[in-house]
């Protein structure tokens, strides 16, 4: 095993080009577990800790440019207003110690369906900026997850920045685990209201081979809210709409039975979380006088 310690982003890209099998390591919270437990012996470890730009974020007009290695703790503490869904998701990640090290880049790189950030990214809307010596490109989050623990990265590419839409309305995030802290998701659900476009976006974690959106549920809800004039009136969403939304969200799951939970439970729980997070966000939307400012 070789340990590569690039001092700059350019050096990192060059190293990755030269050694496409090199495994990037930033927070180490996935990679080191695999090494400690003898599950993985990469030829090269590519340490990204020395690259400052990966730990930086910038709040722009429309987007937040989030460096791949910004620790979850920082997201929780500094980006609650701009990225409320992701901030809530960050708060559910493992433990304080892990949140101090791990970042969204790691979740994306590992692309486990159980990664806590994915549903929030899917719901908010995001693009992943990846780069190689060949140049950079933006991958829409909907196209990023390609299979179980697989993503759209090329072997020579590294994740640089995640461009996440700033919240234009309330966002929520829920995750079921069988413990009240430090637990891997049995399943998770993210929901974002986008009053500017009068749309709702969702994200489901751990209930399909990849993180997915509940598209039918979104389409149903978008139509129902539009038809009923809910966005203007801010009236309470009727139980039947919420119920159907929850059922469709549940139907978007394609889960498995494993030691953490049954497929049946996952479908059930996603439905409950869909209904609850819709209720919470809609209450926030109503409560804020339907302003377009982000709420968390």
């Amino acid at each position: 095993m070789d340990f590569l310690r690039p001092a700059s982003w350019e050096e990192a890209l060059a190293a990755k080009a030269e050694h496409p099998t090199a495994v990037p390591i930033a927070g180490g919270t996935d990679v080191m577990v695999e090494i400690n437990f003898d599950h993985r012996r990469p030829e090269y470890l590519l340490d990204l800790n020395r690259i400052e730009l990966l730990r930086e974020w910038e709040v722009g007009e429309e987007n937040v440019r989030l460096g791949a290695s910004v620790p979850y703790t920082e997201i929780m503490e500094h980006l609650r207003a701009e990225l409320p869904g992701l901030a809530l998701a960050s708060h559910t990640v493992a433990s304080p110690q892990i949140r101090n090290r791990g970042g969204v880049g790691g979740n994306l790189g590992t692309a486990s369906p159980a990664g806590d950030a994915h549903p929030a990214l899917l719901a908010a809307g995001a693009e992943v900026e990846v780069e190689s010596v060949r140049g950079s490109r933006f991958i829409p989050i909907d196209a990023f997850y390609t299979g179980v623990k697989r993503n759209a990265l090329q072997p020579d590419e590294l994740i640089k920045t995640v461009h996440i839409k700033k919240a234009d309305g309330p966002q929520q995030y829920s995750k079921v685990g069988t413990r009240n802290a430090m637990v891997i998701a049995v399943c998770a659900f993210g929901l974002a209201l986008h009053p500017e476009t009068r749309t709702v976006r969702t994200g489901i974690g751990s209930a399909a081979p990849t993180p997915v959106r509940a598209k039918e549920a979104e389409e149903f809800l978008n139509a129902a809210l539009e038809e009923g004039g809910f966005w203007e009136s801010g009236k309470i969403i009727t139980p039947s709409i919420a119920k159907q939304f929850a059922e469709l969200a549940s139907g978007a799951c394609n889960p498995i039975d494993d030691v953490r939970g049954t497929a049946k439970y996952r479908r059930h729980a996603v439905g409950i979380m869909a209904r609850r997070t819709l209720g919470w966000t809609w209450e926030q939307y109503r409560g804020t006088g339907r302003t377009l400012e982000g709420a968390a």
Partner: peptide, 16 residues
């Protein structure tokens, strides 16, 4: 949420 079932995972605000 720390005092509720689900804890930090934000699964209920009292519902159910």
């Amino acid at each position: 949420v720390r005092a509720l079932p689900g804890g930090l995972s934000n699964t209920t605000h009292g519902e159910g």
